[in-house]
Nucleic acid binder design. Sequence first.
DNA 1: TGTGTTCGTTAGAAGTTATAACTGGCAGCT
DNA 2: AGCTGCCAGTTATAACTTCTAACGAACACA
Lengths: 219, 219
Amino acid sequence: MAESDARTPRERYRAQVREEIKKHAWEQIAAAGASALSLNAIAKQIGVSGPALYRYYANRDELITELVKDAYRSLADAFRARAATGADLAELARALREWALADPQRYFLVYGTPVPGYRAPEDTTAIASEIMDVLLGACAAVAPEAAAASLDDQLDGHLAEHRTWAPEHRVAPSALSRALLFWSRLHGVLSLELAGHFTGMGLDPAELYAAETRALTAP
Amino acid sequence: MAESDARTPRERYRAQVREEIKKHAWEQIAAAGASALSLNAIAKQIGVSGPALYRYYANRDELITELVKDAYRSLADAFRARAATGADLAELARALREWALADPQRYFLVYGTPVPGYRAPEDTTAIASEIMDVLLGACAAVAPEAAAASLDDQLDGHLAEHRTWAPEHRVAPSALSRALLFWSRLHGVLSLELAGHFTGMGLDPAELYAAETRALTAP
DNA sequence: TGTGTTCGTTAGAAGTTATAACTGGCAGCT
DNA sequence: AGCTGCCAGTTATAACTTCTAACGAACACA
């Protein structure tokens, strides 16, 4: 994914093994969630014995952090790839949902329950702002007749005064509000859907998601 | 909380110890999250040794399930208590936020990342529908001029056709949509806020929450 | 060909959940 | 009151987990 090419053969082998470890880690996470990820089990699958993995990752947390980083980057890539085709906000919303449904546990790794003591490393926050940047671009380019009407004037005012994120992006406050609401509303639907809170309600989450997308694009 | 009164002194003692176990469990969860909950540590705090706890809870999962159930009931109680005072939708939103901020890990226990294999027991789904019932009541009693305007006609249509939740509650489809959007939008904001995804953005989550509340109450 | 880094091994410490078997005491019935 | 039986809590143990330490072997490089 990132460190594939390397100069010395040792480094190349090292990167290769790190990737294989991550591959099996993702399989475990997809099957039973991040909390059930076991280094021992990964080692057994690979065919080495236990402590060998500590040559590649200092500890379990470092491996998980690496996976979180990969997940984040995967979302950022999906977002940017879609935006590069001139996608509007609605298509971005579809891209987000596809990414989430493709691997629910990957979604939860990024947006799920945080571990109390855990501090996200600098690079993940950098990728997060990268994602918001793409989103802001699409919000700024929203249809003029929609862009004129703000989703919430009071929120616009608050953001115009206090926001410190993506400061290089000069954009109308109404676009900031739109990006923020895009993020939180769609996350709300996806999070409840993936957690299974809609099961048994006779509701197609896609319909709810579509309704939210409509509210965000055509005010 | 529930099983305090009992007939025989043995049962009373038993219920008392179960409560003490839960009390320490909540402290641990508030401090380090549910995944870090350790039966051994609880036993040490209480002053008994290890396996004694298995007299009271068959295993770790049963204890956690009990805590989830208590958390659910606590939210339902908070909701119903507020609704009993004739609270409108906005006040219900405030009650939800207060409940969430009072103990973030308790919120995550209910609405956070689910364990893949886990099936919610029958009673929790019953409590969940109890919560939705209170919410539906408030949505049905929303201001007439607001109630007339639907938040999303297409979603109304879908729900009128397919919904199977709270079937005893006969209410306009627009109220169903409103309840659903109330739930998912506010959860979106709270979930991101409690997970710390707004930190460093120079944004007061309360403002975003208020904006969503406005959108839900005054269309 | 020698040298040193690094990889993988086994051994083991300190945890965890959970079960089995034993003891002591309390409850309730007669 | 006394006997009986259930039940709480104990220790021992198994099977896990993460992670450290010490050793041997293999490989890259000079």
